[in-house]
Nucleic acid binder design. Structure first.
Length: 870
RNA sequence: GCCGAAGUGGUGAAAUUGGUAGACACGCAGGACUCAAAAUCCUGUUCCCCUUAAAGGAGUGUCGGUUCGAGUCCGACCUUCGGCACCA
């Protein structure tokens, strides 16, 4: 019979399911590996061929490791909250959980159809209340924490409250808290005298999860805010997105900037991904400096990386949203300033970036350059961003490109303070290599110094006057955590009528989503949850006071920020993941997923993990030790697969036509895992032919074992190729080089076809080598040869003998002046002198050497003879 | 503009430490089997010159360098892809 992949694959998938072949248990005595795939969002479209790429890679790796006796945790689950299901519900009023469950069923069926060796008993689903109970619990842990910069870790807010009651803020560096408006200091007595709402307002500036009024991307049509990276997609679909200040939940990921950056260096991740995270965090060393205002007592704080150019600061610029704008604006400029602020507020930071032409208006106010005492004008301009530093800069037009452009446009003074090779009024000079000039006052001089000395000297001078200090700043912003959506985890917070808020008690978790009949946006800026009146309204049973539940929900990133932990202990109802199990399974040893998650998902998950680590809830500082991305699979026409281009390949069709083993094999044979590569139907046919060749090598048309296979001594060639094959696969699989491993297996099969006799034991062992790649056909052929049970539970990976991988003769190259003139065969390890003699015996070598002088001989054993002649 | 990765036959690719460039596939060409086709099997297949073979020449994005020898190391540049984009 021919290779009937459909029934074979069905048979073995049922067998594995029935026998729990891939069930994993905790076995602390055994070596463990945690092999993780990025879990999918179960969309209505089903699996596409991009999914099986990463999944197959980890599956081969997993099966290989298991055959080598390693206890492998390899689970799968669903990142199932998300906008598509909710949008569908808006149109149909079908509850998103219904569509979500349907989509999950499709995905599960498709994934099982590929013969992937997941332990399905550990399946997780972010929309399951039993799961999101713990997502909410983690939120409460984060809400209940603050970052202690002295200890460089998160601690419970209760510790902070105790500290305030005892010593107020005296032991804290308040410059590191409170964002742009620095937290005001207070004493223990003042704290103890505060009302509860006052205390909550103070604590808000410290908590790792907090509410803030910030400008967000509001999409009226969708009735929700959008993350920056989501905006383009919806604008393209015709929705309008506006900037709007709204009350939002934030996560203080910025507290972890330094640690996220430092620890990234310890990870075995693609260099480009680590680099992206570095850039995203954007660490820069500089100084914070206070400028006095000319006619007022207040001070204006700026961040600069070029304190060495302070003497050249000829004006200042505030972000339009800066809180001191009103104070600085003189009455006659009020109107113009207001108009500019209004216009700027409607533009997103994205829009501001697009138009590089500088704009801005003068406030009429002045500050004083602390270095030279000069009155300098204060402007507002949207090239200064409120979200970075202090939202204000000292402008040094001679040595900063942006300031130069601005000064040129508005006719502001440009003063050279770092020696430049040209007139700085003609061209900006941003290099730091020249000496400082025009940079001295009665107390300090940095003239003649270059950057490092000038930096140290001037910052020291500021420090001595208590007007500034060294400071590290980060580009990273806090994480906008709330969405005005129904289909997400409810945030377990209650807002009371007295203005305070409290958390939903742990014992009441999960706080389950109410059932809605309609899923339309609320019509206000609140989520559809606001329409569930009974759910929203709460009364404190103890005091009778009334409150409203938080109606915002969490973003899709929430559930995916910790799912890998739940796999370790998926059914635990006492805790999200027991420490004991973590100690065995953490960290994730291999994580494979798309590069599109290089920053966001991987940064958020690292952040949550670190908070949980600080609080003692997880056992490692980092979640994912080794990360690899699978490359994008393009359509046959070398373009990104998309419905509109009609080049989408459906795994169902491929499996139907060629089988799962062929699909798996082809996805791995296309090229290196991480590379982008185009789909090729011809390529699938190629590996399908290979599987057929394997089948026919083992079995005759009549379904009997091929009579060629029996008691036989292998030929030297076959023996060598066999050991080469086992060696290559054994080395390539852990390194995730599947394409070359498959090529080597093809070489073995080609060699086997040349043989008149094939040793049975060798042919049995080859099936074990093939099994991680094409598990169904391997199981079937093994059972046809008389093997009982499953290969994966009955067999161990096969050894190879390195000494048998080399032939006893080698082909040696004879070169003259580096050019190949002849090739000859010589016994392995022929001495160099003999190699030379053999080379010289080649007629064509004589032709190139005779009559010339040999000036140098290079002889590399088993490789080449190279004669340099003149 | 800045940061990162990559450029090898007609195509996907291989060559892990500087040592036979193009393994393994796809495609194509020729042949065997067949009444025929499909499937299968065999042979060939980097390019140029040549009737063929031998021999020769060129060749891993471009130009240059180091070396007996460079896809691999160094320098400059070009192209493609990914990311960031007024971050003071």
């Amino acid at each position: 019979m021919s290779y009937d992949f459909t029934s074979i694959e069905k048979k073995w998938q049922e067998y594995w399911d029935l026998h729990g072949t891939y069930r994993t248990s905790d076995e602390p005595s055994k070596k463990k590996l945690f092999v993780l795939d990025m879990f999918p969002y179960p969309s209505g479209a089903g699996l596409h061929v991009g999914h099986p790429e990463g999944y197959t890679a980890t599956d081969i790796f997993t099966r290989f490791q298991r055959l080598n006796g390693v206890n492998v945790l390899h689970p799968m689950g669903w990142d199932a909250f998300g906008l598509p299901a909710e949008r569908y519900a808006m149109q149909t009023n079908i509850h998103p959980s219904v569509t979500t469950d349907q989509n999950i069923s499709t995905f599960r069926r498709q994934i099982k159809m590929l013969g992937l060796s997941y332990d399905w008993e550990r399946e997780v689903n972010t929309t399951d209340p039993g799961y999101y109970r713990w997502t909410q619990w983690i939120f409460l842990q984060i809400y209940g924490s603050w970052y202690d910069h002295r200890a460089k870790r998160a601690r419970p807010v209760t510790d902070l409250i105790a500290e305030f009651a005892q010593s107020g803020t005296s032991k804290l560096d308040l410059g590191l808290y409170g964002g742009n408006a620095e937290q005001r200091p207070f004493t223990a007595a003042e704290w103890n005298g505060m009302t509860e709402p006052q205390r909550q307002a103070v604590l808000r500036e410290f908590r790792l999860a907090y509410v803030a009024e910030i400008p967000v991307n509001w999409c009226e049509g969708l009735g929700t805010v959008l993350a920056n990276e989501e905006v383009d997609e919806w604008v393209e679909k015709g929705y309008t997105v506006e900037r709007k200040p709204m009350r939002q939940w934030m996560m203080r990921i910025t507290a972890y900037s330094e640690r996220l950056l430092e620890d990234a260096a310890t990870l075995d991740w693609p260099a480009s991904t680590v680099e992206m995270q570095k850039n995203w965090i954007g660490r820069s060393e500089g100084a914070e400096l206070d400028f006095a205002l000319a006619d007022r007592p207040e001070r204006l704080r700026v961040f600069t990386t070029r304190p060495d150019t302070i003497f050249g600061a000829t004006y200042m610029v505030l972000a339009p949203e800066h809180p001191m704008v009103d104070l600085l604006t003189v009455p006659e400029r009020k109107e113009e300033v207001e108009r500019y602020r209004k216009a700027a507020s409607l533009k997103s930071e994205l829009d501001r970036g697009i138009d590089k032409e500088k704009t801005g208006v003068f406030t009429g106010g002045y500050a004083v350059n602390p270095a030279n005492g000069k009155r300098i004008p204060v402007w507002i301009a949207d090239y200064v961003l409120m979200g970075y530093g202090f939202g204000a800069i000292m402008a040094v037009p001679a040595h900063d490109e942006r300031d130069w452009d601005f000064a040129k446009k508005f006719g502001l003074e440009i003063v050279e303070v770092v020696r430049s090779p040209h007139d700085v009024r003609e061209k900006v000079h941003t290099e730091t290599d020249g000496p400082c000039v025009n940079s001295s006052n009665a107390e300090v001089s940095i003239d003649g110094m270059t950057y490092d000395d000038a930096f140290r000297t001037i910052v020291g001078w500021f420090e001595s006057k208590q007007l500034g200090r060294k400071r590290v700043n980060f580009k990273l912003r806090d994480w906008l955590f709330s969405r005005q959506r129904y289909w997400g985890e409810p945030i377990p917070i209650i807002h009371w009528e007295d203005g305070t808020m409290s958390t939903v008690p742990e014992s009441e978790l999960p706080l389950v989503l109410p059932n809605l009949a309609k899923f339309q946006p609320s019509g206000t800026t609140e989520s559809p949850l606001a329409l569930a009146a009974e759910w929203v309204q709460v009364t404190d049973p103890a005091t009778g006071r009334k409150g409203r539940r938080e109606t915002n929900t969490m973003p899709q990133w929430a559930g995916s920020s910790w799912y890998y932990l739940r796999y370790i202990d998926p059914r635990n109802t006492e805790t999200f993941c027991s420490l004991e199990k973590q100690r065995y399974w953490l960290p994730v040893d291999l994580y494979v997923g798309g590069a599109e998650h290089a920053v966001l998902h991987l940064m958020y998950a690292r952040f949550w993990h670190k908070v949980l680590f600080d609080l003692g809830h997880v056992t490692t500082a980092e979640p994912f030790m080794k990360l690899r991305h699978q490359g994008t699979i393009l359509g046959e026409n070398n373009k990104k697969m998309s419905k509109s281009l009609g080049n989408v390949v459906n795994p169902d069709d491929v499996v139907k036509e060629y089988g799962a083993d062929a699909l798996r094999l082809f996805e791995m044979f296309m090229g290196p895992l991480e590379e982008m590569k185009p789909w090729s139907t011809k390529g699938v046919e190629g590996v399908f032919r290979f599987l057929n060749r394997v089948w026919r090598l083992y079995l005759t048309e009549e379904d009997a074992v091929n009579p060629v296979i029996g008691d036989a001594v292998p030929s030297p060639e076959l023996l060598r190729v066999y050991h080469q094959t086992v060696k290559k696969v054994t080395e390539d699989v852990p390194a995730l080089r599947f394409n070359t491993a498959i090529a080597q297996m093809m070489i073995f099969i080609n060699e086997a076809y040349r043989q008149e006799r094939l040793p049975r034991s060798m042919m049995e062992d080859f099936l074990i080598v093939l099994a991680p790649f094409a598990p169904h056909i391997a199981e079937e052929l093994r059972s046809r040869l008389g093997g009982a049970g499953s290969l994966f539970t009955s067999c161990a990976w096969v050894p190879y003998d390195a000494s048998l991988t080399v032939a006893d003769t080698v082909e040696v190259v004879a070169q003259v002046n580096g050019k190949i003139r002849a090739k000859f065969t010589a016994p392995l390890d022929t001495p160099e002198a003999e190699l030379k003699a053999l080379a010289m015996a080649e007629p064509n070598m004589r032709a190139h050497v005779d009559g010339k002088t040999v000036v140098k001989e290079i002889i590399v054993k088993n490789k080449l003879v190279n004669l340099v002649v003149k």
